[in-house]
């Protein structure tokens, strides 16, 4: 079963994402309310994908991503940024960082699992 980690400081968004991925996608979902918690979970669990919010207090999304990428144990986990800073069709200057994709907020909960799968080249 696909296991995803959802990282967002906003409880309700986290809840929506969890339900969307579990109920619609049939995935197993872990969630974290910040960068530090995310790094801990990533270090201790097998993860297929991390959905990472960008604007978070404390350790923000980009810094969290850098640390994930810097740790050989977590470097191979694909990371998708979920952010309200961009909108559909925006060019994102984060090319070269090694992120697997960007999903703009607000996202469609009914297609979220499928969209992530398409981005990562998984069979849907």
């Amino acid at each position: 079963m696909t296991r995803a980690l959802v990282v967002d400081d906003d409880d309700s968004i986290r809840m929506v994402a969890e339900v969307a991925l579990e109920s619609v996608g049939g995935w197993e979902v872990l969630s974290a309310d910040g960068g530090v918690a995310a790094l801990e979970l990533a270090a201790t669990h097998r993860l297929d994908v991390i959905l990472l919010d960008v604007m978070m207090p404390g350790l923000d999304g980009l810094e969290t991503f850098r640390r994930l990428a810097a740790d050989p144990a977590t470097a191979d986990i694909p990371v998708i940024l979920v952010t309200a800073k961009v909108r559909v069709g925006d060019r994102v200057d984060w090319d070269g960082l090694g992120i697997a994709g960007v999903i703009p907020k607000p996202f469609d909960p009914m297609t979220l699992a499928r969209d992530v799968s398409v981005m990562l080249g998984w069979p849907t």
Partner: peptide, 24 residues
Amino acid sequence: VSHELRTPLTSIRGTLGLLAGGAV
């Protein structure tokens, strides 16, 4: 502003989308 608006909107849209889509 657009970021701040989108954050609650993501929850609203997500919740309503899940409800309307029969996910729950």
